[in-house]
Amino acid sequence: MPKVTFIQPDGSAETVEIAEGLSVMEGAMEYGIPGILAQCGGGCSCSTCHCYVADEWVAALPAPADDESGLLEFAWEPKESSRLTCQIHITPELEGLILHVPEQQI
Protein backbone atom coordinates (compact mmCIF):
# COMPACT_ATOMS: atom_id res chain seq x y z
CA MET A 1 0.00 0.00 0.00
CA PRO A 2 1.33 3.47 -0.84
CA LYS A 3 2.79 5.41 2.06
CA VAL A 4 1.65 8.96 2.71
CA THR A 5 3.29 11.37 5.13
CA PHE A 6 1.38 14.06 7.01
CA ILE A 7 3.47 16.87 8.47
CA GLN A 8 1.84 18.89 11.25
CA PRO A 9 2.33 22.65 11.68
CA ASP A 10 4.79 21.91 14.54
CA GLY A 11 6.93 19.84 12.16
CA SER A 12 6.02 16.43 13.55
CA ALA A 13 5.43 13.85 10.85
CA GLU A 14 3.41 10.67 10.62
CA THR A 15 3.67 8.21 7.74
CA VAL A 16 0.76 5.86 7.11
CA GLU A 17 -0.19 3.30 4.50
CA ILE A 18 -3.38 3.99 2.56
CA ALA A 19 -5.02 1.42 0.33
CA GLU A 20 -5.30 2.16 -3.37
CA GLY A 21 -8.69 3.51 -4.33
CA LEU A 22 -9.31 5.21 -1.01
CA SER A 23 -8.98 8.97 -0.71
CA VAL A 24 -6.17 10.51 1.29
CA MET A 25 -8.84 11.89 3.62
CA GLU A 26 -10.18 8.38 4.31
CA GLY A 27 -6.66 7.26 5.16
CA ALA A 28 -6.23 10.25 7.47
CA MET A 29 -9.48 9.34 9.25
CA GLU A 30 -8.45 5.70 9.62
CA TYR A 31 -5.27 6.72 11.43
CA GLY A 32 -6.80 9.71 13.22
CA ILE A 33 -4.40 12.27 11.76
CA PRO A 34 -4.98 15.46 13.79
CA GLY A 35 -6.14 18.58 11.96
CA ILE A 36 -8.11 16.86 9.21
CA LEU A 37 -11.77 17.14 10.14
CA ALA A 38 -13.60 15.93 7.01
CA GLN A 39 -16.99 16.97 8.30
CA CYS A 40 -18.86 16.12 5.11
CA GLY A 41 -17.22 12.71 4.86
CA GLY A 42 -15.83 13.12 1.37
CA GLY A 43 -18.69 14.92 -0.36
CA CYS A 44 -16.52 17.82 -1.56
CA SER A 45 -18.92 20.02 0.35
CA CYS A 46 -17.12 21.51 3.33
CA SER A 47 -13.36 22.13 2.81
CA THR A 48 -12.42 20.75 6.24
CA CYS A 49 -9.96 18.16 4.91
CA HIS A 50 -7.70 20.83 3.40
CA CYS A 51 -3.95 20.17 3.20
CA TYR A 52 -0.97 21.65 1.38
CA VAL A 53 0.68 19.25 -1.04
CA ALA A 54 4.49 19.27 -0.79
CA ASP A 55 5.87 21.28 -3.72
CA GLU A 56 7.50 18.31 -5.42
CA TRP A 57 4.16 16.46 -5.47
CA VAL A 58 1.87 19.17 -6.83
CA ALA A 59 2.43 18.24 -10.47
CA ALA A 60 1.79 14.55 -9.80
CA LEU A 61 -1.86 15.17 -8.95
CA PRO A 62 -4.69 15.77 -11.42
CA ALA A 63 -5.88 19.37 -11.26
CA PRO A 64 -8.84 20.07 -8.96
CA ALA A 65 -12.35 20.30 -10.42
CA ASP A 66 -14.22 23.59 -10.08
CA ASP A 67 -16.22 22.56 -7.01
CA GLU A 68 -12.98 21.76 -5.19
CA SER A 69 -11.26 24.95 -6.40
CA GLY A 70 -14.21 27.03 -5.26
CA LEU A 71 -14.03 25.60 -1.75
CA LEU A 72 -10.24 25.91 -1.62
CA GLU A 73 -10.25 29.60 -2.52
CA PHE A 74 -12.02 30.24 0.76
CA ALA A 75 -10.24 27.65 2.88
CA TRP A 76 -8.03 28.80 5.72
CA GLU A 77 -4.92 30.43 4.17
CA PRO A 78 -5.06 28.78 0.77
CA LYS A 79 -1.93 28.40 -1.34
CA GLU A 80 -1.21 27.19 -4.86
CA SER A 81 -0.51 23.79 -3.36
CA SER A 82 -3.83 23.56 -1.48
CA ARG A 83 -5.99 20.49 -2.06
CA LEU A 84 -8.95 18.81 -0.42
CA THR A 85 -7.66 15.42 0.61
CA CYS A 86 -11.06 13.80 -0.05
CA GLN A 87 -10.42 14.51 -3.74
CA ILE A 88 -6.97 12.89 -3.86
CA HIS A 89 -7.36 9.20 -4.66
CA ILE A 90 -4.51 6.88 -3.86
CA THR A 91 -2.73 5.27 -6.81
CA PRO A 92 0.62 3.43 -6.90
CA GLU A 93 2.19 6.58 -8.37
CA LEU A 94 1.49 8.44 -5.12
CA GLU A 95 3.87 6.23 -3.09
CA GLY A 96 5.73 8.64 -0.82
CA LEU A 97 3.21 11.52 -1.09
CA ILE A 98 3.87 14.29 1.43
CA LEU A 99 1.18 16.64 2.75
CA HIS A 100 1.32 19.52 5.18
CA VAL A 101 -1.64 19.88 7.55
CA PRO A 102 -2.78 23.52 7.94
CA GLU A 103 -2.88 25.19 11.34
CA GLN A 104 -6.65 25.19 11.17
CA GLN A 105 -9.53 24.30 8.92
CA ILE A 106 -11.87 27.19 8.13
Binding site: S47, D67, S69, F74
Partner: peptide, 12 residues
Protein backbone atom coordinates in the same frame (compact mmCIF):
# COMPACT_ATOMS: atom_id res chain seq x y z
CA UNK B 1 -26.44 25.54 -6.23
CA UNK B 2 -23.15 24.56 -7.89
CA UNK B 3 -21.67 27.72 -6.35
CA UNK B 4 -19.04 26.72 -3.77
CA UNK B 5 -17.51 30.21 -3.65
CA UNK B 6 -20.74 31.89 -2.58
CA UNK B 7 -21.28 29.17 0.04
CA UNK B 8 -17.77 29.46 1.45
CA UNK B 9 -17.78 33.26 1.43
CA UNK B 10 -20.99 33.22 3.44
CA UNK B 11 -19.58 30.79 5.98
CA UNK B 12 -16.98 33.48 6.66
Amino acid sequence: VNRPREFMACRK
